[in-house]
């Protein structure tokens, strides 16, 4: 990604470590395979796309714990609930858009039944690229966030994906976690710690807070670097857990910066931006600008092209930050 590559070149960026060349889905698949001997209750369910979701690593390392369900996601989702009832920790893996197809199964057979199932979705957002609008899932965070008891996570880089995978195994209860299709830059340091429900401040700032998740975190860092050159001090929060959202970090940021930009590879309705707005409206109302897909469907193209075309890159985030600051200053 051009934006995050630029970010890597700036020395003031938050401990940027260079690219692993790994996608989030590959990072997830490798992590799960590596953790499997330690967590023997973990099993994997696949719907004929193990090669795409990263769990081909697990299939190879632990074939006796890998279960194939064919191209039938609704059944797979409910089966996972039943397997969890016998004490296993099932990971249901497919593309985000096909998780959307089985939302009602996730609701009844998993969340309402309070089953310890982990739904891990690759290929979210415009990051899907050439497959086009039908495959670019821009609604999954909204749908899964609306299910009671469902934890929703969208890690930022391959390292955080690795940490989040173990945290998700240890967590008791249903989880929906986004991975990603395209190569993702490593942006977090070896000292990074991931805790479900906790935001991490990648960069402190006093003028505006940029809250991002998933692939947008690297772009938010890019924007912060640009803003710094314009004399604007931007705080960057990596909100890897969209639900439950870190209300304390948001409230502190509201008091200390007074305005926000939210960034997500998702529709602006129902996702991270909505979650931030809901939290702030109840505690510390202040101006928010929403970077995301503006209630449209995607289309074919390379991920970087699409991010630019739909206004998700660093320059758009930086411009939104300036709008947020101007609105705050008018108050």
């Amino acid at each position: 990604m051009a934006s995050s590559t630029n970010a890597l070149k700036v020395e003031t960026a938050p401990q940027l470590i260079g690219s692993s060349g790994d996608s989030l889905r590959e990072a997830f698949g490798k992590a799960l395979s590596g953790l499997a001997d330690q967590y023997k209750d973990v099993v994997v369910l696949d719907a004929d796309i193990a090669g795409g979701t990263g769990v081909h690593h697990f299939r190879k390392s632990h074939p006796d714990r890998f279960f194939q369900f064919g191209i039938a996601e609704q059944n797979m989702m409910s089966v996972a609930g039943g397997m969890a009832a016998t004490g296993l920790t099932p990971f249901v893996t497919t593309f985000a858009v096909f998780c959307l197809r089985a939302v009602e199964q996730a609701r009844l057979s998993i969340a309402y039944s309070n089953r310890n199932v982990k739904i891990v979705a690759s290929h979210p957002g415009l990051d899907v690229g050439p497959d086009g609008g039908s495959a670019q899932c821009l609604e999954d965070i909204a749908a899964f966030r609306a299910i009671p008891g469902m934890t929703v996570i969208s890690p930022a880089d391959p390292f955080e994906m690795q940490l989040a995978t173990e945290a998700v195994i240890k967590h008791s209860g249903p989880v929906y976690m986004r991975t990603g299709r395209s190569p993702a830059e490593r942006i977090l340091p070896d000292t990074h710690q991931f805790e479900i429900g906790k935001a991490t401040m990648l960069r402190d700032g006093r003028d505006v807070t940029i809250v991002a998740c998933g692939v947008e975190v690297a772009r938010a860092c890019d924007a912060a670097n640009t803003l710094e050159q314009d004399g604007i001090s931007a705080r960057v929060l990596n909100m890897a857990t969209v639900k439950p959202i870190d209300r304390a970090a948001l409230q502190t940021a509201a008091l200390e910066t007074g305005c926000f930009v939210t960034c997500e590879d998702h529709n602006i309705y129902g996702g991270l931006g909505s979650a931030v707005a809901e939290a702030l409206a109840q505690s510390a109302p202040c101006p928010i600008e929403f970077i995301g897909v503006q209630d449209r469907f995607g289309e074919s193209g390379e991920p970087d092209e699409l991010a630019d075309y739909y206004g998700l890159t660093g320059p758009y985030i930086a411009a939104a930050a300036k709008r947020a600051i101007a609105r705050r200053n008018q108050q």
Partner: peptide, 9 residues
Amino acid sequence: SAAIGMALG
């Protein structure tokens, strides 16, 4: 489907 998951588990 959940019953199938229980049988498989």
